[in-house]
């Protein structure tokens, strides 16, 4: 088996509701897959099934034995009641060595906030800390659930650039849920539109012309993205 994770025709039914319906997805080495879809589409649920948190009611998920993955949850309400420095948080229950810790810290640029209390971190700092945590065990696959949702536009751009850098340097696979398709257009290799079932999928350039995508997100959105695609490319090439 070559795929890191391979899900075949999975359906998830919770309290009588069909949350995922006949979804198939393969995640291979060096993939960069972005999942988009409206709120409540089952995006987070799909990620959780792929990681084995839930068993699908129908269908099967095959995972490469001993797959190392890193996970960044959609939202972490930092509890103010617990005193904890970022540095400790990154390492709890993680297998790692000093070298990879150092590497991760410099990669995610969190040197200056390691000694800060979790409850004092800003949104962007927290996202970088979470990213660092998910990278600490040298994962083959990163699973990110709306990693930039609390950031402003420039914060989002910075975060996705960071992600792109990590992706190309480490050669790992990324599976990400994101609404900021216009920002990840350049990095991502494959886009999946999910709304309980897979509506359409393909390369980012193709998908913006797909009639199903247009009917789901509207023509305006597609045009906005086409524009972004150009300007982003220029940005990336200039850097």
């Amino acid at each position: 088996m070559n795929a890191l994770i391979s899900a075949k025709n999975i359906s998830v039914i919770k309290s009588g509701k069909n949350i995922l319906n006949d979804v198939s997805i393969d995640i291979n080495k060096n993939d960069f897959i972005t999942i988009i879809g409206p709120n409540g589409a089952g995006k987070s649920m799909l990620l959780k099934c792929l990681m084995g948190f839930y068993k699908p009611n129908i269908g099967a998920i095959k995972t490469k034995p001993n797959l190392k993955f890193g996970y960044m949850p959609q939202n972490l309400d930092v509890i103010k009641t617990i005193p904890m420095k970022a540095k400790l948080f990154i390492t709890i229950k993680k297998k790692f060595d000093k070298i990879s810790l150092k590497k991760v810290i410099s990669e995610t640029q969190i040197e200056n906030i390691l000694d800060k209390q979790l409850s004092f971190l800003s949104g962007g700092e927290m996202q970088r800390v979470l990213l660092a945590r998910s990278l600490l065990n040298n994962p083959e696959l990163l699973i990110l659930d709306e990693p930039a949702q609390n950031l402003d536009v420039s914060g989002q751009t910075l975060f996705y650039k960071l992600l792109q850098k990590i992706y190309s340097k480490r050669g790992l696979s990324i599976l990400m849920v994101s609404h900021d398709l216009h920002l990840v257009m350049v990095s991502t290799k494959q886009v999946i539109c999910l709304s309980n079932h897979i509506c359409c999928c393909g390369k980012p350039q193709q998908i913006t012309n797909d009639p199903k995508f247009l009917s789901m997100f509207g023509k305006d959105m597609a045009e906005v993205m086409a524009v972004y695609q150009h300007s982003n490319k220029e940005n990336f090439e200039n850097n």
């Binding site: 948190f53 996970y71 709890i92 945590r133 699973i143």
Partner: peptide, 19 residues
């Protein structure tokens, strides 16, 4: 200890470490 701490912080993160 560390399992308890991680579950306290976030149950999904804990699950991703196999807890």
């Amino acid at each position: 200890w560390s399992s308890l701490l991680l579950v306290t912080l976030d149950e999904d993160l804990a699950k991703s470490e196999g807890i």
